[in-house]
Design a protein around this nucleic acid. Structure first.
Ligand SMILES: [Mn+2]
Ligand SMILES: [Mn+2]
Ligand SMILES: [Zn+2]
Ligand SMILES: [Zn+2]
Lengths: 129, 129
DNA sequence: ACAATGACGCAACATTGTTGCATTTGTATC
DNA sequence: GATACAAATGCAACAATGTTGCGTCATTGT
């Protein structure tokens, strides 16, 4: 748990990051709240702001989804900065796929500039199959 | 404007579909509301339900985004059922890319079943460059 | 110990979309 | 064309997720 970043290493930040590190999949604000220990009951807003801070400092990343809910996941070294995700259409679980969708230049209209790619594979997880 | 589908060909449905057909890019519920003619002032809920109906009947498709807003676009024959999208990080505009992201089997964990792919390229449009 | 700055908690708000239900409208049948 | 039925609409209330403002508390550097 290295927090050599702009800002303070508070109990909340450490606990939230630990929670995310302990999780294989990407989880929602709600799920994080539920997993936090009794000793770490913090306000929803603080949780939102802490997650934002962890994202800005490159310790976690967040994933958009079609259910309008952000999911958060720790930045393990195993997967690169940019990677694809899988979302189960049965249980809504989201996992990170380590394979990059290749930055093969996408044929954009002329004058358009490429920045990044966002790729989600949908299907059924092993449990929901 | 062929509406040989389950349900009625009401003024609202025809007007909304016409609005979407007249648009190059995918637009939001808000934007559709603004573009509707004076003679077609319908309730927000009706608009939501009509859009849902148009999606179910395969006349339009909707696109998820990181701003938690659905964008809708008519199903022109030019782009296939499955296609990628581009979102401008400057003006939030979304267009459909006609090139398919290839259904090359993504390496999912064992036991997982592939259903579909959702791909958004982000960058700057010609105006925002 | 003190002051400055950052983090936190609480309340209120914003946005987007959904649900229930009564009323209206379109369509098939007569 | 009138009638009956089902579908579509309008309105109000609700739900879920996330944001903003601001006063208070805690951490850190001096
Ligand atoms: Mn990920
Ligand atoms: Mn499209
Ligand atoms: Zn599942
Ligand atoms: Zn743009």
């Amino acid at each position: 748990m290295i927090l050599h970043h702009s800002g303070r290493a508070t109990a909340g930040r450490i606990g939230i990051l630990a929670t995310l590190l302990a999780e294989q999949k990407a989880i929602t604000h709600r799920e994080i709240e539920q997993r936090l220990p009794q000793s770490l009951q913090l306000d929803r807003v603080t949780l939102y702001r802490t997650l934002e801070w962890l994202v800005e400092n490159g310790l976690i990343h967040k994933i958009t989804s079609d259910d309008r809910v952000w999911r958060y996941h720790a930045n393990h070294e195993s997967h690169s900065h940019q990677h694809a995700h899988f979302k189960c259409t049965g249980c809504a679980q989201v996992i990170c796929l380590d394979s990059l969708p290749t930055e093969q230049s996408w044929p954009l209209p002329t004058g358009y500039r490429f920045q990044e790619i966002e790729l989600t594979v949908k299907g059924l997880c092993a449990n929901c199959c």
